[in-house]
Nucleic acid binder design. Structure first.
Length: 840
RNA sequence: GCCGGUGUGGCGGAAUGGUAUACGCGGCGGUCUCAAAAACCGCUCCCUUCACUGGGUUGUGGGUUCGAGUCCCACCACCGGCACCA
């Protein structure tokens, strides 16, 4: 009989239609089995599902299907993170409304997501740009507002003076506006922020989370907790007009002083302070600038306003330290010494207090700065040999020896106890206190843009800032907007949006026209999936309690810090409001790697190395594309796409099909009978189940497929060795197992085979196969014999061979004796059943 | 620059501190065929050798260990993030 041909397109279309009709993957709230919330990071609707989405979602779907077969009630939702900048760019470029563009893209991507063969629960779909979703985004914002976790203040934004508009960082190309090339500046404007810093300490705790170590480390470093002291320096305010002696002697005794706090992790070096630095944006700069320095200071501030923070933080030697003296002075609170005040761009307003005490001898950046401007360097630590010399140093000495030049503290060692002694003294003299500082800053959520969720706030001439009453939500985004280069949200030019009445007094008022950062939408979407159609509330407590927290969350490592930190913050804040009863949103987290182009480079249209999923799927089928993606390498590493690689995986599926269809042919002509070769088939089957189970559980899909390939190779070999084995029930069992093990990775061929092997129900509804550990080990083992760690011989033995037996056999070996060359055996190391190392 | 990660045959990669190179791709040889493709079988890290054998090899240089791709230190290269792309 002629072997039937593997036709993925036909098989896949057929099962696709069947599954859809049966609503096979809708998760039911009343299902008694244990729940498993299997989540992927939802896509931005850019218009096309790219191969990276396929990679992410295939791995997640395999895991979800695996868990379903392991007896879980799996919820695997999908949706779209649909607000954001690209829609506005498209609107301007193609003269199409963001809403229309986004909804068209979503319609297309729904189709593409369907082809993947993933077990999506479409009934739970969430689209963040629709009013029935963003209504609740606004509601969540109002809850934060009520708790004082949302507030409005001046905050910096990139500003293009030519386009009269704020710019996203992405729109700033090497300091200039991407559209017109004008140098971008930083401007302070009124914006909304969320007080994530209130949760800084709690966010450092990752207890109970099965997350990659590197992600926890990155978040920890991002939060950047450091202990130290806040120390108050007095600054002498220079006279407003220039006097002949610079305003110093005549007025200093009566001069006005103001206090400026610095944060330092090294209060123990306070006697070594030789200058005082302010960030160029520091609010006291103007007041502390002497008249003769005014022009230089203004010019420097202007220059610094064009620099990015990354540039400013750079400690690159090729980038010289810059700064300008204000012409005024500060007083060291411990020594009373007068030190000059400068502004320097390496001091950031967003970190600490925006002011730094300069200790050049023991801080590298301060050292470089002092050398650049000829400022004095004073050692307050000396090493044991007394070799440090302030004039001869080529770099700072951050940790060394013992304290000098510091009065009563001289002689103390470089230690935490010494730091504490200084803090205690600073507290005693009332100059400051021990404090904890975080690198983490509050989250700026205002966007001066149209395509986002409007911030539900009204400004009343009489009552000021007023929250929109919850019953009035959603504050609807107009369907259309005009994009003018005015620097303000297009909403400001839509009178029907802008003008409203005050909820308190009913008099005319205006709406906030900034919209919310899209990260807000993605900070709670996983809650909405639990209760997606609720028109009366953001979520029902019992439904969220049923499904949350997320059991497995798979998405890119590029979200390791911001999105994942924001979502954790949301859950903790909502918990404190009594709206959630759990601590952390994502119990287990996994980052898939990146799929690169065939040239090993990141895929991009300009490089012409983009692989379009639709075209490879129509050629090889979704099963082959899924399996190849997973076979490419470790799931968390990604790798380059290889056109020959997918050919190889496609050939494998053809071999699976050939094995299966030949078997069906041969079965029809033979009666079931056990033959000797069946024993090996049985062992191979058990070993394969063990390997694949372990691999799927740990998302090691590449080695799972390697095991499945070896399985098929082994079955073909067994059949070549003894044709009759196909009539052995153990061979039938092996083929059924093959269908079950393949089902998560290649759901269509798995289903087709399962049905072909005379089963009426879906392979995806079966229980995951078990195995007998005793049958997964070999009947004979190879014990490797080494001499001084080098391989010299191998012994074939029973698995339980003892050390004495192995040692005797090894020493009898001529190869071992030759390697020993007559030296006595000094030591023998034995790893049972595996290795014997003779040390001589 | 700072934070995090990665580096193994011609290529993608495998390897609880214990036989480095599983599995797949490519290449070479063969079977089948008038021929080719497909499919199937065999070989394939490097040097030495007709062969047996011996030696070498996991980015570079050191170290720990009976034994290191794996652990530690330094360096090099590449990738992700750096707060308004998402």
């Amino acid at each position: 009989m002629a072997r039937s041909k593997y036709q993925p397109t036909e098989i896949e279309a057929r099962w696709q239609a069947r599954w859809a009709g049966q609503d096979a993957y809708a998760a039911r709230n009343d299902d008694p089995r244990p729940k498993f919330y299997n989540l992927v990071m939802f896509p931005y609707p850019s218009g096309d599902l790219h191969i990276g989405h396929w990679y992410n979602y295939t791995g997640a779907d395999i895991f979800g299907r695996f868990q379903r077969m392991n007896g879980y009630n799996v919820m695997q939702p999908i949706g779209f993170d649909a607000f954001g900048l690209p829609a506005e760019n498209a609107a301007i470029k193609r003269n199409i409304q963001p809403r229309e563009w986004t909804l068209d893209n979503i319609a297309n991507m729904r189709k593409q997501l369907g082809k993947l063969g993933a077990a999506w629960d479409w009934d739970r779909e969430v689209v963040t740009c629709l009013p029935d979703y963003y209504r609740w985004t606004q509601w969540v914002f109002l809850q934060f507002y009520k708790q004082g976790l949302a507030y409005r203040t001046k905050a910096p934004a990139n500003w293009c003076p030519t386009c009269n508009t704020t710019l996203a960082n992405e729109q700033v190309v090497s300091g200039a506006c991407e559209r017109c090339g004008t140098l971008v500046e930083r401007r302070e404007i009124d914006q909304w922020l969320l007080r994530i810093t209130r949760y800084a300490d709690e966010l450092l705790n990752f207890e109970g989370l099965d997350w990659p170590e590197k992600t926890k480390l990155m978040q920890t470093n991002w939060i950047g907790r450091s202990e130290g002291a806040e120390v108050r320096f007095k600054a002498i305010v220079p006279p407003k007009t220039q006097t002949r002696d610079g305003g110093r002697r005549s007025s200093e005794d009566h001069a006005e002083t103001i206090e400026i706090s610095v944060f330092t992790t090294r209060p123990d070096t306070i006697y070594g302070v030789t200058f005082f630095l302010l960030a160029p944006e520091h609010p006291l700069v103007e007041k502390l600038t002497a008249p003769k320095q005014r022009n230089a200071v203004r010019a420097y501030i202007e220059q610094a306003s064009h620099e990015s923070e990354i540039e400013r933080m750079s400690a690159d030697k090729a980038r010289p330290k810059t700064g300008v003296p204000l012409g005024s002075y500060a007083l060291n609170p411990v020594s009373g010494e007068r030190i000059p005040i400068w502004i320097a761009d390496y001091v950031l307003m967003g970190y600490g207090t925006g002011a730094v005490m300069g200790v050049p001898a023991h801080d590298q950046r301060d050292f470089t700065f002092a050398r650049a401007f000829g400022l004095p360097i004073r050692l307050v630590y000396q090493d044991e040999t007394g070799s440090l010399d302030a004039d001869a140093m080529s770099e700072a000495a951050p940790h060394v020896g013992h304290v000098i030049n510091s009065g009563q503290f001289n002689g103390l060692p470089d230690s935490q106890a010494t730091v504490n002694a200084f803090i205690q003294y600073i507290e005693e003299i009332g100059a400051g206190k021990a404090t904890v500082n975080y690198r983490l800053r509050d989250w700026l959520v205002s966007r001066q843009r149209y395509w986002g969720a409007p911030i539900p706030i009204i400004y009343c001439p009489e009552h000021g800032e007023v929250a929109v009453p919850e019953d009035d939500l959603p504050v609807r985004l107009p369907d259309e907007a005009e994009f003018k280069p005015t620097g303000e949200s297009p909403l400001r030019y839509d009178p029907s949006f802008l003008h409203t009445t005050c909820p308190i007094c009913g008099k005319p008022a205006t709406r906030e026209t900034d919209t919310l950062d899209t990260f807000i939408c993605s900070s709670w979407y996983f809650l909405r999936y639990a209760d997606p159609h609720d028109e009366t509330q953001a979520w029902a407590a019992d439904k969220v309690a049923k499904w949350l927290p997320v059991d497995m969350y798979i998405g890119g490592a590029e979200h390791a810090v911001m999105h994942l930190l924001y979502a954790r913050f949301f859950v903790k804040a909502l918990r404190d409001m009594g709206l959630l009863a759990f601590e952390e949103p994502f119990t287990r987290l996994y980052h898939q790697g990146t799929v690169l182009g065939p040239d090993g480079q990141k895929m991009s249209k300009s490089r012409g190395n983009v692989i379009a999923p639709d075209s490879v799927v129509s050629r090889y089928g979704a099963d082959a594309v899924r399996a190849y993606l997973m076979f490419m390498g470790p799931f968390d590493q990604g790798g380059p796409w290889n056109n020959q690689g997918i050919e190889g995986v496609s050939r494998y599926l053809n071999r699976v099909w050939a094995l299966y269809s030949d078997y069906l042919d041969e079965q029809s002509s033979g009666a079931q009978v056990e033959v000797a070769a069946g024993v090996g088939v049985k062992r191979l089957r058990h070993r394969t189940i063990a390997r694949v189970t372990e691999d799927y559980r740990n998302l090691r899909f590449n080695t799972a497929l390697a095991a499945l390939m070896e399985f098929v190779n082994g079955l073909n070999k067994a059949r070549d060795d003894d044709k009759a084995v196909t009539n052995d029930p153990r061979f039938t069992a092996a083929l059924e197992t093959l269908a079950l093990l393949l089902a998560p990775m290649a759901p269509f061929i798995g289903e087709e085979m399962w049905h072909g092997l005379a089963h009426a129900d879906s392979v995806h509804a079966q229980s995951w196969p078990g195995y007998d550990p005793a049958l997964t080990v070999d009947e004979r083992v190879t014990v490797v014999v080494q001499v001084n760690g080098k391989l010299r011989d191998k012994l074939e033995a029973a698995p339980g061979i003892s050390e004495d037996e192995a040692r005797e056999l090894a020493l009898a070996s001529a190869k071992v004796q030759a390697a020993l060359a007559g030296r006595p055996v000094r030591k023998v190391i034995y790893v049972p059943g595996k290795l014997l190392n003779v040390v001589g």
